[in-house]
Amino acid sequence: MNLTLQMWRQRNLSDEGGMVQYEISDVSPEMSFLEMLDILNESLIARGQEPVAFDDDCREGICGMCSLVINGIPHGPDSGTTVCQLHMRRFQDGDTIYIEPWRSRAFPVLRDLIVDRNAFDRIIQAGGYISVNTGGTPDANAIPVAKSEADLSMDAASCIGCGACVAACPNASAMLFVGAKVSQFRHLPQGHTERARRATRMVEQMDAEGFGNCTNHYECMAVCPKEIDVRVIAELNQEFLRTELTGSE
């Protein structure tokens, strides 16, 4: 099939950037979306132009590196799917596809479709951990955890940190990401000692990074490749409010 691509091209952080149109032919429906971009890049290189820069790594939907907004939807039209697992059979011959980077003040564009997501790392640094040093930990079975709680924890922990929630949110809010981490530890006894501190510090950092606020559109949940439920946001709200109102830290 033949496609028209409208892509965001931007040389570097300070460049203004803009949309550029490319025509691509002989796209096979078996190709993944990123393989289609590989073909485009090969043809650009052959024509002496610079290939389009985009982030990817594992190409099996788990590393969280790929990050394209396709026709206005982060990770494209399939639900519960990262871009790298999106296949071209989802598109029709003659389609025009808009490809843009994640858009958020906290995720500056480094080049073309590549954004800087280190704001997420800094949020984790602020409190997205359990403070244990290596060694000296009790036997793994010393503290039983109800299966239902462990499952809730795992649901939240499956976040791949791709940032699609931010890209999709009309307010570029990171609440689903932060909520997922807070929820993972909230449902485990190991996470309880630091729960108050964790919520306040992560929210503080989230705000400092310039993410927007949650206004409960739930668009994040709709695009999340791991289909993380917005209950994690309710849990984050609860943890934060309880800490602030009781003054515990």
Binding site: Y129, P138, A150, M154, Q184
Partner: peptide, 14 residues
């Protein structure tokens, strides 16, 4: 395994 559980790795449970 002890270390990972203490870190909050949500292993499958019975």
């Amino acid at each position: 395994i002890d270390q990972c559980v203490a870190q909050g790795v949500p292993f499958a449970r019975e």
